[in-house]
Design a protein around this nucleic acid. Structure first.
Lengths: 198, 198
DNA sequence: CCTTTTCTAACACAGTTGTACTGCTATGGT
DNA sequence: ACCATAGCAGTACAACTGTGTTAGAAAAGG
């Protein structure tokens, strides 16, 4: 048998090259050739792994979404109540280099609101997952006295969810004005306030 | 002298053609030819008004930002306190067709966080203006008993500002899941809550 | 060592892109 | 009436794009 390569790992590797191009040059910077060069290979080789450019883009975006999803699915490291909820929410914020990369790439793919096709579908999944993660965080709060009994969990999610994405957006676009500590502080302040009466 | 055209109006007209292309096909849909066709003219004519594509893009984005800015600067129509604050904040949300168009176009230009040049500068101005508008809204609240004395105005802005942009983001990307009424309701609920103790 | 499979590079090609340039048209001042 | 010129269309061109095609290299089994 001929040489064999870990197929999934290879595709992931090429997707990461696309991420780097997107972060450096924006979504317009993506081309079969530029991504191939970034990955240290050729356009022909890239085509061996992804039949079309759209397939590469879809795979790359899905890889980002999956990575965040995996972090969200992991059991919380011995935390409970408010701390557990914050841990969960912070998985969706650009608080370190890895999460910043994820947010930037994801943002780059948002420029076409009405887009159709696989990319739109992936975004739809990501959106639903994000909202569910926020809902899970609110449930963690509610189960541990972190949510005041007079507060409606659904309303708490309605506010917390856009707040999280808004913070992610600002911190990604203006990391100097809205650094990780600021994002974390605003989030913590609000989550702690949820323990009080409305 | 030869025939003369309202130069600024003509440029604005072409910018609006670019908006339509961006909304229909996304930021990638922009090309000298596609925008010219959308405006019912030729690529050569477009070049007569904008030396380069970047100049056209910058002018178009600035036009969006200016339009929102003008609405924010207009004196409030006989409102005060909470209602005035809400009116101000709602100018930045995609609550009708015009504002939805603005938000979509602006979002389309956000895909390159680290971008440099005029586009980045315009975005910087828009970001600062948005934040100041939110701060103005909070001041309106504070001056009319809409902000509880135990609340810190700066903290209120720190939360309200990303909330507004997060709502705008969600409503633009998922108008079906987050329609105008939902956005308005979440915003009103939070602003009214600011009158209570923290 | 040799065969077979997998992988890669290189080239080909048609289409699109931004920009430049040329010349035509119509208009307002003289 | 005349014509200088703003406005515009059309063409040209080099660069780059995505996608095919083809031939060769690399590696694991016999």
């Amino acid at each position: 048998m001929p040489r064999t390569v870990d197929r999934e790992a290879r595709r992931r590797e090429l997707a990461e090259a696309l991420w780097r191009v997107v972060r450096r040059e924006g979504i317009d910077g993506i081309s079969v050739r530029s991504v191939a060069a970034e990955a240290g290979t050729s356009a022909g080789a890239l085509r061996h792994w992804f039949a079309t450019q759209d397939e590469l883009a879809a795979f790359s975006l899905r890889a980002v979404v999956d990575r965040v999803g995996e972090r969200l699915a992991v059991s919380l490291p011995g935390l409970a109540g408010v701390e557990a909820a914050l841990f969960l929410l912070e998985q969706m914020l650009p608080l370190d280099e890895q999460r910043r990369a994820e947010t930037e790439v994801y943002l780059a793919f948002l420029g076409r609101p009405h887009a159709e096709g696989p990319l739109r579908e992936i975004r739809g999944v990501a959106e639903a997952a994000s909202r569910q993660a926020v809902a899970a965080a609110v449930r963690l709060l509610a189960g541990d006295g972190g949510l005041h009994p007079d507060r409606d969990p659904a309303s708490a999610v309605d506010l917390l969810y856009p707040l999280v994405d808004g913070l992610a957006l600002h911190s990604t676009l203006w990391p100097d004005r809205y650094p990780a500590e600021h994002v974390r502080a605003v989030l913590r302040a609000h989550v702690h306030a949820l323990a009080g009466p409305p």
